[in-house]
Design a protein around this nucleic acid. Structure first.
Lengths: 311, 311
DNA sequence: ACTTAAGCATAGGAAAAACCTATTCAGGCT
DNA sequence: AGCCTGAATAGGTTTTTCCTATGCTTAAGT
């Protein structure tokens, strides 16, 4: 039979002091009296007494010199211990204040995320306005594709996301802010450029420049499919600027939904923007947040600014 | 009948978070799991759960995103709160460590007090030795008369006192270290200077220089009174140096108990030191501490050094 | 699609801690 | 000596903490 080795459960008997006990002790130390401390803390005298005794037992310190019938005074060790205890209590209070500041004040930092499609178009001015109002809040804006955005929200990396309402899972809340109806970008010498509006059917036969991003791709494709036609993809591009350049140089038309301020491509050619007839399904832009998590005041303030900006 | 005004008890509902709750929360946050935290903390899963819920209720924060059947992740607020909570817990641990350091290690600072009569004669060399052994301990030595010494001990201003066992109250513990038998200081041309020892009776008629300090005065007087004679006080002086100067210049003899290393006064005259016959009552030098308060290791170490120095 | 597994929340009762009232005890004060 | 003050103790009650058992919701597996 083997020798059974006794396993010593090493729970590392860390001194167990509660904040309450420390509070009682400090109060007694400052008043040099258990009774006065009891009055100040709105508890009975034995409560203070036993808290002190408990700390003395836990630490092995003699905190007080008991003067019979006339209160207490701190021992030198007690004085030193009280100093540190007060610091700790201070920090504990600060933690509480910090918590309320997180729920109540617009401060600290704010992390959010958006799609690179329109982040640089919409967010800079909102961030500018926000910074002017709340200069102490540190803004951090990431750009990522929809998949990463949703994962980041679920993992708590971002407080909110400015994105489309596409494939948003049930755990997330999507509050729409505005809609972007799709429109056509045409080179100025395109046969359809003189119309006031064009239909999907009209466009189908012409060569198209496709913004080749996961979401855009699916969305614009769906506009044709819902009309029973298929687009004639001549070129694919990976940035808005490139698409505009290709259009401006007459290589085809493109569909867009994010509003563009400029009617000129980077190389100086003019572009014509026309609405689509038949009110095609617009994309909905909004804010995605976690369903069961209250937003911070900073996040709410930012989202408000975003809303007024877009509406 | 007067309107009864309802008194709103404004107890300033300060957020009541316990360290234990914070510990549970942090552990859950670090493990991204209530269950794992429960195992790590050796408590049941609901204990962790309710601690978190309690903090969330108290602070109004949503600390975690609950992923059904696959743990938790911290919200942005939760992340920030956890950082601060960890800091607080760190500080709490430090307080515990500080307490044990007070009881176990020779460190920090050490305040004590002694009588100016012999403090400068005895303590400097002990302090020197102590500093060489424990250079990090800060020594603070006050000088005060017996009355102030005793009050200072009772108020916790000093950890111990090096003094005589005179009028020590019951709350204090006096541990004697050594005895100082009184002896005579004579000018070298004094009629008794050639003897090997002198008696109190012999001295009584000669002019005496009295060290006019409360305790010394009473003590030396008592040596005469116990023999049924009275001293012939010619001069009174307020310092050892002055007494020695007066003696050396032939103005009288003096009684001393603290041992002197030099047989020369400050102005260069020789002094003769002779023992008293009849073994008069010696003064007892020792250490006074509070009776019910354990001394710190630093104090014990110092007192040990003092004892080996004097014995 | 249905079942199983994982994992947090809730319920209810038991154990522990905190608290309160009443009393004791030890020194000062008159 | 007797009263007063103020801390400690005793004993019982309330509050908190903790545990077991169960429910509920989604992911994963078949």
């Amino acid at each position: 039979m083997l020798c059974s080795i006794p396993i010593v459960c090493r729970v590392d008997h860390a001194m167990q002091l509660t904040l309450k006990q420390l509070r009682y002790f400090v109060c007694a130390g400052e008043n040099a009296s258990v009774t006065k401390a009891a009055k100040a803390m709105f508890v009975s005298q034995p409560s203070i007494s036993s808290a002190i005794l408990h700390i003395e037992e836990q630490t092995g310190l003699d905190l007080f010199i008991r003067h019979h019938a006339q209160g207490l005074s701190l021992t030198p060790s007690g004085q030193r211990f009280m100093l540190k205890a007060k610091q700790l209590l201070e920090e504990a209070d600060n933690l509480g204040k910090f918590a309320t500041s997180l729920t109540e004040s617009i401060s600290g930092s704010l992390r959010f995320v958006s799609l690179p499609t329109f982040a640089p178009i919409i967010l800079p001015s909102v961030m500018r306005q926000f910074r002017d109002l709340y200069p102490d809040v540190h803004l951090h804006c990431d750009e990522a594709d929809q998949e990463k955005i949703l994962a980041g929200l679920l993992e708590g990396r971002y407080e909110f996301a400015v994105t489309y309402d596409l494939q948003v899972p049930a755990e997330l809340e999507f509050t729409p802010i505005t809609e972007f109806p799709p429109y056509v970008l045409l080179p100025s010498d395109h046969p359809l450029a003189t119309a006031t509006a064009v239909s999907i059917e009209q466009l189908a036969e012409h060569p198209m420049i496709l913004l080749d991003w996961p979401m855009s791709r699916d969305y614009f494709y769906s506009l044709f499919l819902s009309q029973g036609v298929e687009p004639n993809i001549a070129y694919r591009a990976n940035s808005l600027a490139m698409v505009r350049g290709l259009v401006a140089n007459g290589l085809g038309y493109a569909l867009f939904n994010t509003p563009l301020a400029s009617d000129t491509s980077l190389d100086g050619h003019k572009i014509v923007m026309l609405p689509l007839t038949g009110s095609p399904h617009p994309t909905r832009l909004g804010v995605a947040t976690l369903k069961d998590v209250r937003s911070t005041p900073a996040a709410n303030a930012f989202i408000d600014k975003l809303r007024t900006q877009l509406m």
